[in-house]
Design a protein around this nucleic acid. Structure first.
Lengths: 151, 151
DNA sequence: CAAGTTGTAATTACAACGGTTACTTCTGTT
DNA sequence: AACAGAAGTAACCGTTGTAATTACAACTTG
């Protein structure tokens, strides 16, 4: 039995978790990598690496020495797509992967890439466009609602 | 420099390549795993493994002993989604991956999964729906056109 | 300066992927 | 019946991505 687990890395959902924590706890606690690691149940270094990727992408600022995370723009202007691109950089931005060097002497081999390219791009675009529909602000609202229901 | 290569495995595009070869060469050659491996430029065993997955998914029949691949239904009824599901089986069908065991004592930790689930499902659905729009028949037509342009 | 925190390198363990060899099983032909 | 060609499959291997962990340097504030 073949058991493949081709999933998008957990960095993406961890990054969304981070944003949600920062938003929820920013006034109440100092949101450090240790704090976040405890909520997510992982190692602080994992968190720092993801924070570094979000910082490199210009989505947040991280206070060195003192600790703390600050988004660089309104939460409604940070989409799931921004976060995904920040933590899951893909070579050439291509979600799909061709086998290298198909046989150029085979009519199919030398045309398959061309034939598939447009279709695969539209599939990738469909996913990414849907990712652009959701923002960190949506997370903020959704979490408030869930917490209100808990009370 | 972070170099992540989170791509969908080449099995998917290789499987599409296989279908295109079978369709193009079925009357002219005996399309064996060796033949396919030569067009794709890989090892015959790799091809056989993928043929096995396509067979298990009920998309093709493979002639043991004599060799040869036959789709089990009209090419217009085999979608990219069918092929993708056949060769890239994902645990629980979930494209996105959560970190295990977030802290249940943290309000965010115990609600994040619930909060994200619906949104992530819609992203995955967007991709899969677009995959369903393309069929092996489209490959057939596209390849004929490209080959006509070559002549 | 001391304490707390981020940044980061180095290492480990594990799993997926693609490749390869070798062998068994099957099928049609001679 | 034997043979040849081909699929099926097990057993490896090397490479790479992921997540975890330790250790330590760099930074910031009190």
């Amino acid at each position: 039995m073949v058991k493949s687990i081709m999933q998008i890395s957990s960095r993406f959902t961890v990054a969304l978790h981070i944003f949600s924590c920062v938003d929820t706890f920013k006034d109440e606690y100092k949101v450090t990598s240790d704090f976040l690691a405890s909520s997510i149940n992982t190692n602080p270094v994992i968190i720092r690496r993801i924070l570094g990727q979000l910082k490199n992408a210009g989505l947040i600022e991280v206070a060195r020495g003192t600790g703390g995370v600050t988004p660089t723009r309104p939460l409604a202007e940070i989409t799931f797509y921004d976060v995904y691109k920040a933590v899951d950089p893909i070579e050439d931005d291509e979600l799909f992967h061709f086998h290298e060097n198909p046989n150029p002497e085979c009519p199919v081999g030398r045309n398959i890439h061309n034939l598939l390219n447009e279709k695969l791009e539209s599939i990738q675009r469909a996913m990414e466009d849907e990712m652009r529909r959701y923002t960190i602000e949506d997370l903020h609202e959704g979490m408030e609602k869930l917490l209100a229901e808990e009370a």
